[in-house]
């Protein structure tokens, strides 16, 4: 017997979660596809479901004193797109997710909770060291999105925890983003790339790279990034950076694309990004 819980407060939700192993159901745009059985039939859930969209207190976008932006778990993409508090890079990424209709339903927290390697919103979150606040009856803990997602559909989440909010830092980098999908809209990502950087006096003072859909989770490697931070632009050798990433990008062949293409395009995008950083020099 499957139970369907519809709490209207966080407190109530936490109590339910403490006692039941549940799917946490927000916008549902992924779960409804995964659990779809057939037209006219209920979704085929194999364990209890906790619907959270009625928890109004989780619907917010707020800025704190340090300039960090807090996005409540039931906040939908269309609300994020429309908010003046949200850094541009997030909007750029979100505008290419699914379709306008789906963005009227889907949440950012849901995209994190779904932990798909093709989740587009994960790139800016991971690149910018965004955090999730997990809430449970025992209290709260804060974890980086990068550490929260362990693999395909795998999260560092205890059964009684829920994503309460996402905390993102204000934008301070220059970005280069490309999503490569099967078509120009409503496409599931074959490979995606987000690079961020900051240059001061010809020196690379910040340098970050993230790849989507090329591994079991978004690829970001701070060790490699650190090798290049504080280097002079002229000392950045494109081939050497590509060489550092080539083995970290380990895509698969599936019904959407093949591993050769994904790898090649990921490296092409990295090169393009590096060229942009170097201002077209060292071609």
């Amino acid at each position: 017997m499957i139970h369907y819980f519809v709490p209207s407060s966080l407190k109530e939700a936490l109590k339910i979660l403490n006692e039941n192993d549940c799917y946490i159901f927000a916008g549902g745009t992924d779960l409804m596809v995964q659990k779809h059985l057939s037209s006219g039939l209920l979704p085929n859930f194999d364990k209890d479901v906790l619907f959270i969209m009625k928890i109004n207190e989780l619907n917010y976008i707020e800025k704190d004193n340090e300039g960090n932006i807090h996005i409540g778990a039931t906040t939908r993409y269309n609300e994020i797109e429309a908010s003046s508090l949200i850094p541009e890079i997030y909007k750029t990424v979100i505008k290419e997710i699914a379709s306008p209709n789906i963005r009227n339903m889907a949440t950012l927290a849901g995209n994190i909770g779904n932990a798909s390697p093709a989740g587009d919103s994960l790139l800016p979150l991971i690149l910018n060291d965004a955090e999730v606040v997990l809430s449970s009856i025992d209290g709260e803990r804060i974890i980086k999105v990068q550490d929260f997602i362990l693999g395909v559909k795998k999260l560092d989440r205890k059964q009684n925890e829920i994503i309460k909010e996402i905390v993102i830092k204000p934008q301070e980098l220059d970005y280069f983003y490309r999503k490569v999908g099967s078509r120009k809209a409503e496409s599931i990502t074959k490979v995606s790339f987000l690079g961020g950087y900051k240059i001061e006096k010809n020196r690379l003072v910040d340098f970050r790279v993230a790849f989507g859909s090329v591994s079991t989770k978004v690829v970001r490697n701070q060790e490699v990034e650190n090798k290049y931070i504080n280097k002079e632009l002229k000392d950045i050798d494109i081939d050497s950076v590509v060489n550092d990433y080539t083995n970290l990008v380990t895509p698969i062949t599936d019904q959407r694309s093949n591993k050769e293409y994904r790898h090649k395009v990921a490296m092409n995008l990295l090169k393009k990004f590096l060229k942009e950083i170097k201002g077209g020099r060292d071609e």
């Binding site: 369907y4 596809v33 619907f51 379709s99 209709n101």
Partner: peptide, 28 residues
């Protein structure tokens, strides 16, 4: 039945959504 085609589009609070992906509880 998977939010791709939009034939099931309805307006919820004036915004278009795919009714094939929306559980009825979310229009409460």
């Amino acid at each position: 039945g998977e939010g791709e085609c939009g034939a099931c589009t309805v307006l919820v609070n004036d915004e278009p959504v795919n009714s094939c992906l929306m559980p009825i509880i979310n229009v409460f």
